[in-house]
Amino acid sequence: MEITFVIEKFVFITVIFGLSLLVAMYSTLAERKIAAFLQDRVGPNRAGPGGMFQPLADGVKMFLKEEIIPTQSNKFLFIAGPSLAILTACIGSAVIPWGQDIQLFGKTIALQATDINVGILYIFGVVSLGVYGIMIGGWASNNKFSLMGAIRAASQNISYEIPMGLSIIALLLVTNSLSLKDIAEQQHGFQWNVFYQPLGFLIFLVCAFAETNRTPFDLPECETELVGGYHTEYSSMKLGFFLFAEYINMFVSSAVMATLYFGGYNYPGMDYMNSLLGPTFGPLLGMAVLFLKIFAFIFFFMWVRWTIPRFRYDQLMNLGWKILIPLAIANIVLTGLVTALVNGF
């Protein structure tokens, strides 16, 4: 392995890591601004112009708050919980292709941390690992409400992983590849997968809401029933990590949805723009388009949060097991049939 390759990857990963943290940071502000807009309020507007420095102020507040570790808790696991939550949130973005190969300083650089040939499954694995942070944190707190929140999170995540996996299988029947780079390249121009897999996308979207514990599926932290859910006992930056992990998860799942179903960095007329802008700025524009799509998804996440109330627990389970799973299976059968008919068996 050449040293330049290692440096190149290191710089790229650092940039992506910083970008996801930045987006997550400003998502907290966006969330409050959008909530304010939907409820006809002003929202945070004191720190900096239009409240621009509010996330920094929140961060400083989180760092400076008193750190409390309950005496009856399991100290190691109590700290491991939020660390694991933020770790699994951050490693998901490793396989996402952020753009076409770019010409920079006379070198061709792939805008992807790594292109493993089981990319989708990697994301799926990271998602399924994400619940451990919440479970361990909730259990280690030694608090009934935290434990209830942790158990809810576990059963919810397991239930919604199944339709998510099934909707991915239907998508794979269309793409014939597990590599996210291939999938993104196949959707060149306007051949986005969402036109071939509308039902699959809908199921994936609902599951993404459930896996990120966003409203209407935020039962693990349901404050009307469980005080604060799994993070009841947490304070200071450990609480911050749990909250921050949610926003990073939202960013990564938006990126995954944009890549899998909405063409990733592809947009209509990209060939013309690429020939116009050249091999450096063309891919950059593609990356900007991808980020636009991601922001649209993040806005959608927030829009839903401030519009739809929380599910009841049995409704959540009914939706997952009795509606989404049969729908996802029907989607697989339908996709398989159509694929077989088109290919002439």
């Binding site: 694995g125 399924s128 690992l129 479970m135 158990i151 397991i158």
Partner: peptide
């Protein structure tokens, strides 16, 4: 990774908790 770590062990942990 997915099946053992992500699904079966979550269930184990779930039941134990």
């Amino acid at each position: 990774f997915i099946v053992y770590m992500g699904a079966i062990m979550v269930l184990f942990l779930f039941v134990l908790m």
